[in-house]
Design a protein around this nucleic acid. Structure first.
Lengths: 249, 249
DNA sequence: AGGCGATGGAGCGTATACAATGGCGATCCA
DNA sequence: TGGATCGCCATTGTATACGCTCCATCGCCT
């Protein structure tokens, strides 16, 4: 008990200097998680566009941690396919290919429609209320032009919905698909037209609250199809412009 | 105390000297991937049982790399939920809870049945042949008592099947679910009775080859249900044995 | 003048060193 | 003798240092 005096918060600013970074040392783990979420949100909200490079020491400097922690975070993001890690070239925000886009939406069709029945069965009044609030916030964000916030709220809506199914494995998968959908929207979405029609979400809640799982599933299917249809998913030849094919004719 | 000194001397794995193993960088990335697969396989094949601790420097010494690389691999495994990373306690093979087990099998029901139609539509003769060979190898392994190999081949069968759907996102998800299923089998499976009845797989191929997606989906549903039913998924009091409830009666 | 090779720099990959934390055993007191 | 506290050790978390690869620019050769 020779060090009982450092219990007070002052001790945390051991890194001399001005300690201008967030003084809350909090805890290393939480700190890393916060950084992870910050970067993840920036990607999902399109503040970091696909293709943007993420240099390790730049991030390390910005967040005031060493490259080691940044690398860990980047790998986590890479495993969720939000960033692409090319060997010796560093990290960059993933630019989904057209094929990936189709796959993601097909997967959402299968899974998100498939869980509607469970969601309808398990939904409690409080859940419906929370979802409605989320939908309302999304609509408001959309109305006031905050595209970033709207995109994130929309993804969050779908993710929350999946969580209500009670199946953690599927919910996590849906969460990832939604994140990737945000990326897809950033690349293939026509600007000015956000994916989800906001009233769709409210109507969906109505079906679910009434316990009409079948109807909800069908509606979700149309909803996702509508989003997909609003995109212009074309494979722009990114890497290998076939010069032969272009010029030989 | 003269015996403590020469324990180290493990420099052989360094690229010094003849560099027989991989000359220099023979390539770190592949090396790490190989280690990852080795550990992953060991877990899936039940050579590492749930709950087994995975100390970083022990692994580092075994594979001849430093802890840095091992940490990266362990984190990757943790994100796939094959190992559990507890904050200051290190890594251990995940012991799935009963709830997770239900979730995983429910997810497999939804997804693996859902893709059968696509698989039936896209399946080529060569695919069917490869699958049959896989099933045959699995049956043979089962017959000759190589449980480890059989388990892995079974998981591989389901995963390959999912890949034939043409949807990479769903295939990857199924792959992960199969890995987790191996863990679940290790914890809740009755010994001596492997999950998949081997002839099921052959029959499934028959349906698919004939283009009968509906039938295949139904069969897959029964197949998974059978596996699930063969388990005894009960929540064994994990952490907090309720002594009151046990002894007060 | 243009293309190809060399050289320098930037950034990632890996290893090692250091610090902190939690567990576990030993010791002391009641 | 039982329990609690203190201190050491084992193990992970973080940072930094160094080496290697790739890219860009510059200069020379054709």
């Amino acid at each position: 008990m020779s060090q009982q005096e450092v219990v007070h918060g002052e001790a945390s600013t051991r890194n001399s200097g001005t300690g201008r970074k967030k003084g809350k040392n909090g805890d290393g783990a939480e700190r890393h998680d916060a950084i992870y979420r910050t970067i993840s949100d920036a990607i999902i909200e399109h503040r970091l566009r696909p293709g943007a490079r993420l240099r390790e020491d730049a991030l390390a400097e910005v967040f005031g941690v060493s490259r080691t922690g940044i690398r860990k975070i980047l790998q986590r993001l890479a495993l969720e396919q939000l960033v692409t890690l090319t060997p010796r070239r560093g990290a960059s925000v993933t630019r989904p290919t057209a094929e990936e886009a189709w796959d993601v939406f097909a997967a959402r069709q299968l899974v998100e429609c498939g869980i509607m029945q469970d969601v309808a069965r398990r939904m409690a009044p409080g859940d419906a209320r929370a979802l409605r609030e989320l939908a309302a916030r999304e609509r408001q964000a959309l109305k006031s032009g905050e595209q970033s916030a709207a995109i994130k709220l929309s993804a969050e809506f779908h993710q929350r919905l999946a969580q209500l199914s009670g199946n953690a494995a599927l919910a996590e998968f849906v969460g990832r698909l939604c994140s990737r959908s945000s990326l897809i929207l950033a690349v293939y979405g026509s600007s000015g037209h956000l994916g989800c029609e906001s009233h769709d979400h409210d109507e969906l809640i109505n079906f679910l609250e009434a316990g009409k799982g079948e109807r909800a599933a069908a509606f979700m299917g149309r909803h996702l199809k509508a989003i997909e249809a609003s995109l212009s998913i074309v494979e722009e030849e990114n890497e290998a412009p076939d010069l032969h094919h272009i010029f030989s004719s």
